[in-house]
Design a binder for these strands. Structure first.
Length: 338
DNA sequence: GGCATTTGACCCCT
DNA sequence: AGGGGTCAAATGCC
């Protein structure tokens, strides 16, 4: 499979000796998987538009897959796991001076790198901090301005704007991204990702392959001290893939809601506000909050407070606040179904 | 007290 | 000149 082969290529040398290269390769593959998922989600939603439950189910599943990748990326990007950073350049040591010289706006900054319409505008894998909100003339809803949470400490210039464009159920939001992330989770669209998006089925196969290859690598590549983190990571992926099967066999209930059982995929956000310095609390939810429906099967699955219909749960601290693995009560290794 | 969000004001661009 | 983007003080929450 393409994803697997790419993983193999990227780590084709001595895995045990090339920890930094491997680390980068894992992050790269995870990022790519997330990108593919985002594209696949767009394609699927476009294809399933107006099909009610099918649309909602597809949106949710792909959202969870995307989030799982985000969790993994954050784990791999955490200080404990990341390889020693390269020596900082003088310019890197004085970002504020650079920032002062950068004009507040330029023509290029006003052009969105990416633009999507989604019911869950905050699940894009990055951590954002709101810095402004403004009513836009001739529009019904205000526009919210976010910048990357690593704006200061990593001089990441990525920003995004979120504006509700319909008051439907779920409400739809126009999300515009500006500038590329220069933090460690930065990524840009790869040509093959775009190509894969033209064929959603192939993209999903590619995605699955990448995930499988990733797990295999993670299971064999790390030392004892990282065993726990690896298990957590594997558990996260296992939960996601398991939940896909679960969701496949247990479609949303008759009321049309997506059950939290299917949401067992990803992460467990504490009921209290989950906020860290780099992961601020949810912004004021533009959409009405509604508790997810819990069915019987869900009782056997870990709970997840999840944004299914566009609830604003952005910016929770993935690495610091989310609990998986142990909190899932998973057996060692996460009880991988594969 | 620290931190994130809110919101009015300021500034830039068209 | 008006609209839109950003700043920063005020506010709220823990």
């Amino acid at each position: 499979m393409q994803g697997q082969s790419r993983l193999a290529v990227s780590g084709g040398g001595d895995i045990s000796s090339g920890s930094e290269g491997e680390h980068e390769a894992v992050i790269r593959e995870l990022t790519r998987g997330r990108q593919l998922t985002a594209r696949l989600r767009d394609e699927a939603l476009r294809a399933l538009r107006g099909q009610g439950q099918a649309e909602a189910t597809a949106a949710f599943i792909l959202q969870e897959v995307s989030r799982a990748f985000t969790v993994c990326i954050n784990i791999m990007g955490s200080p404990a796991r990341a390889p020693p950073p390269p020596p900082e350049t003088p310019a890197r040591l004085s970002p504020t001076a650079t920032e002062l010289l950068v004009p507040r706006r330029n023509r290029e900054d006003s052009i969105p790198r990416e633009q999507t319409v989604t019911s869950s505008p905050h699940y894009d894998g990055y951590q954002w901090r709101k810095y402004g909100q403004k009513r836009i003339t001739k529009t019904q809803f205000p526009r919210c301005y976010y910048r990357c949470s690593f704006h200061r400490e990593r001089n990441c210039r990525a920003t995004k704007q979120v504006q509700q464009c319909s008051g439907g159920d779920p409400p739809q939001y126009l999300v515009m991204y500006f500038n590329d992330h220069t933090c460690d989770t930065a990524a840009s669209w790869e040509p093959e990702a775009a190509a894969s998006a033209a064929n959603p089925a192939a993209a999903m196969m590619d995605l699955s392959g990448a995930a499988g290859g990733l797990v295999a690598r993670l299971q064999g590549a790390r030392g004892v001290q990282e065993e726990h983190e690896r298990q957590v990571l594997v558990s996260s992926l296992a939960c996601v893939l398991g939940a896909q099967q679960f969701a496949h066999h247990s479609p949303p209930d008759a009321a049309g809601g997506i059950t939290s059982g299917a949401s067992a995929a990803a992460v467990n956000v504490p009921p209290q506000r989950a906020r860290t310095r780099d992961a601020p609390a949810p912004a004021t939810a533009p959409a009405a909050a509604s508790a997810p429906v819990v069915d019987d099967a869900a009782a056997e699955m870990p709970r997840l407070d999840v944004d299914v219909v566009g609830l604003d749960v952005m910016d929770y601290g993935v690495t610091g606040e989310l609990c998986f693995g142990e909190s899932y009560g998973l057996p060692d290794g996460g009880g991988l179904p594969f």
